[in-house]
């Protein structure tokens, strides 16, 4: 099992770098994972990460990209609920990359 070290703590990740134990997540871990992905976290990035975590809390899944854009559009406005905006924030794929940083399992639809 691979692991990462954040604040002196070893955290298990799977082969693609997703957190193994979802309860290990905190903002420092998110920043670490973002750095690994080459993503610099801005307020807009956090907005998406927080949205994903809330969605997961409510529905127990990470949404696939089409649902993610639709749901974000509904909550944060049409200017943000589109693929282009989300890909600019997360070039590695908004669902995949943002889910990893949010400490969630890989979204359904990516397997």
């Amino acid at each position: 099992m691979a692991s990462i070290e954040v604040n002196g703590k070893q955290l298990e990740v799977d082969e693609e770098g997703y957190l193994q134990n979802l309860e290990d997540w905190n903002m420092d871990v998110a920043n670490f994972l973002a750095e690994q992905e080459g993503v610099e976290m801005t307020d807009n990035h956090w907005e998406v990460v927080n949205f994903l975590r809330e969605y997961y809390e409510e529905y127990k899944i990470a949404p696939m990209i089409r649902i993610l854009t639709k749901a974000i559009g509904k909550k944060l406005g049409a200017d943000k609920g589109n693929t282009k905006y989300l890909y600019e924030l997360y070039p590695g794929g908004p669902a995949k990359q943002a889910c990893k940083i949010a400490g969630l399992p890989k979204p359904t639809g990516c397997v």
Partner: peptide, 10 residues
Amino acid sequence: FSTTYRVMED
């Protein structure tokens, strides 16, 4: 996982 059935419509 049953709470996930709520996303069916979306």
